[in-house]
Computed example of a mutant assay.
Amino acid sequence: METRRDVFHAIADPTRREIINLIAARSLNLNAIAGNFDVSRPAISQHIKVLVECGLVVISQQGRERFCEARLERLSEIAEWVEPYKKFWNARMDKLGFLLDELESKPRRKPKKR
Rank of each mutant, 00 (worst) to 15 (best):
G63S: 10
L96F: 07
A34D: 14
L28C: 10
L22T: 05
E73Y: 03
A32W: 02
P42S: 10
L103D: 10
R5S: 01
Y85D: 14
F8Q: 05
T3P: 02
R74G: 07
K110D: 13
S60H: 11
E83A: 14
E65W: 02
R109W: 01
E77V: 00
E102N: 06
F37W: 12
R71W: 05
R4Q: 13
R4N: 10
P107K: 09
R109V: 06
K86I: 04
M1K: 01
R26N: 08
S105C: 11
R71S: 00
Y85Q: 09
S40G: 10
A32Q: 15
I23D: 00
C54E: 12
C54V: 12
V7E: 14
V57L: 05
D13L: 08
L30A: 02
M93C: 07
E83M: 14
L100H: 03
D101V: 06
E53F: 03
V57M: 00
K87R: 14
V39L: 10
S45M: 12
G97F: 12
V57H: 00
D101Y: 06
I59C: 10
V57T: 01
A32I: 04
C54N: 02
H9T: 11
I11M: 04
R66T: 11
P111F: 11
S27C: 01
S60V: 15
L22N: 08
A34F: 15
D38H: 08
Q61I: 11
N21D: 13
H47Y: 03
F37D: 12
K86M: 13
L103M: 12
L100C: 09
S45I: 10
K95W: 03
N90C: 04
N31Y: 06
D38M: 09
D101W: 04
L28R: 11
E18F: 03
V58A: 13
R26E: 14
V82T: 05
L99G: 01
T3C: 03
L100M: 15
K106P: 04
A25D: 14
P107C: 06
N90Y: 05
P111M: 14
D13W: 08
D94H: 07
D6H: 14
S76M: 12
N36E: 15
E104T: 06
A70C: 11
Y85V: 06
K110M: 12
E69C: 05
T3L: 12
E83P: 02
D13V: 08
P107E: 15
I78L: 15
N21I: 01
K112Y: 05
I19R: 03
E73W: 02
V82G: 02
K87C: 06
I48M: 15
F88H: 08
A25H: 05
P42I: 10
V57Y: 00
